[in-house]
Amino acid sequence: MRSCAEQGYEALVNNYIPNELAAPLPGNPLDPNSLRFQQLKSEAAHLIYRDLIKNESDSTWRTGSGLRHLLGYGGQF
């Protein structure tokens, strides 16, 4: 039998994220003032950022300041 935490995680990953949190927002995707347009713009920026990180060489991450050096902002954690 699975724990409540495991059941909650499964529900989050298999239902809530794909069906609720990633659901299209209302509005015309061609209207820059609509929520849907802003959602699509954010998704595109996320994919570009993710690809930038994925395609960067390992040497970028060795110093501990890879993204700060690459993007010009951020700080130590």
Rank of each mutant, 00 (worst) to 15 (best):
D58K: 11
F37H: 02
P24R: 08
N19E: 14
S34K: 00
K54H: 13
S59R: 07
G74E: 07
L71W: 11
Y16M: 12
N14M: 13
L35M: 13
G74W: 07
Q7C: 12
Q76N: 13
N19A: 02
A5K: 12
S57K: 10
S34N: 01
M1W: 09
I48Q: 12
A45P: 02
E10Q: 14
G75W: 00
R62N: 08
F37Y: 14
Y73W: 15
Q39D: 06
L30W: 10
W61N: 02
D31W: 07
T63Q: 12
Y16K: 07
E20N: 13
R50G: 02
L67N: 01
L47H: 10
S34M: 01
N15R: 15
K41G: 03
R68G: 05
R36V: 02
N28W: 08
P18R: 05
D58C: 04
E43C: 08
G8I: 05
Y73K: 08
D58W: 03
L35Q: 11
L52E: 12
K54I: 10
L21H: 09
E56F: 07
L52W: 10
F37L: 02
E6F: 05
R62M: 11
Y9I: 15
Q38E: 08
F37I: 06
W61K: 04
S42M: 09
G8D: 06
H69P: 02
L12E: 09
L12Q: 08
S34R: 03
L70Q: 03
E6P: 04
